[in-house]
Simulated scan of single mutants.
Amino acid sequence: MSEAEARARRIVTDAPTDLIVDRLAAELRRTYGITDTELYQVDYRLAELLPLGGDEAIAGPGHPAWHAFDHQEPIVADGTGWFPVGMRGERRGVLRVAPMPDDRDARRELDTIATVLGHELAAVTSTTDIYLTTRRSRRLTLAAEMQWEMLPGRSRIRPSFSLAGQLEPAYAVRGDSFDWSDDGHRLWLAVLNGFGEGVAAALLTSLATYALRNARRAGLPLADQAALADQAIYAQHRGGQHLSVLLMELDLATGTLTAVDAGSPHLIRLRGGEVAQQTLDKQFPLGMFDGTDYREQRFQLDRGDRLFVVSDGVIDATADRIRYGESALDRFLRRTGPLEPLDAVRSLIGDLRAFVAGDLVDDAVVVCLDWLGPQPDAGPAQ
């Protein structure tokens, strides 16, 4: 690490939470002669890059900022540098700097500094509302606020897998959600297809999510995780409310996928350009009956397999009495092969919006998981 990088890192980590970008801008001016620094964060719909300051939002897909965001690489255009801001696969936005120094070392250092900024923003987000409020193009509903606060992130990259998810309608989602965790040996993924309206749906999904986390963190097998969450929901609602969930556990050394389908969203596999619905042993949704026993299934993934989990809000979206799941979904999934999971998810949601000619009315969740194969030399968890 160069002296300039080390100094910028200290500036970012030592700055008050509300002055992180301002202090970084002052340091970039002193070190590199950069007079214009701005942070753009991607909004909840993955449709706009919103400035922290007073500049205009960037929505056009052909803009250099979007190129930097989509490809996760620095872009220099017309004397302005655009650097991806994120951490561990979670894309937060881009950093704009101008005038861009005409120096390869400076470009590399600024790229590293943008990544440091991404880590610091992740560290302080729970302590301030500044960075959350400025990544919204409109007000979130209360239910949507609850759902987004529960998410572990929107994307994750490890040597053996890449993962991304999205909730829609982003500013008004109610009951659909997802959750994941990995420990370097296994990846756990839950995709929830909630029922009900407004805050009641969000509360039901919250109860299920925290019950599943509690069981997972206690080291329980996947079927027992489902059973514990089922009991928690039934105890609260006595069968009056229930929730569908697909639980998955991926062994990162072998590619063995264990699944529990509790009235779940749909699991679709893309292998060698071919799309196939994964057959699941459908079981009762969580909370429907008292004391339900759940069964696990196991599948073997091949290196390069891509899995999509989509909720009924995707499958059943209708235009001119034609369901998206019947007419367009498979065709579009085949086209996502070259895309990274977050880009595939965003493109699928965009295609869905175009299909219904506007924002979605019903909740929809899309999660994309790429199995890249075992990585024996990847080292500890990243």
Rank of each mutant, 00 (worst) to 15 (best):
I75A: 07
F332Q: 00
A77C: 12
V361A: 11
L228W: 06
A202Q: 11
P374N: 13
S177N: 14
G291P: 10
R107N: 13
D316C: 04
R7N: 14
Q297W: 03
I113D: 00
A114K: 01
F299A: 02
E109N: 11
A143T: 01
E3V: 04
L270C: 02
E340A: 10
H67W: 11
P74I: 02
H63N: 02
R104G: 14
L301S: 02
L280E: 05
L142E: 15
F161H: 14
D36I: 09
I58C: 08
E197G: 12
G255N: 07
A328L: 11
A122S: 06
T292H: 06
L52V: 11
L243N: 03
M100F: 13
D22N: 07
P341F: 15
T31Y: 09
E38M: 10
V21S: 01
T134M: 13
D363S: 03
R10P: 04
Y294V: 00
D176P: 13
E90N: 14
T256D: 04
P16W: 13
R331G: 08
T125H: 14
V124F: 02
E145Y: 13
P169D: 01
L222Q: 00
D230L: 08
C368M: 11
P285Q: 06
A229C: 05
R174K: 15
F69M: 03
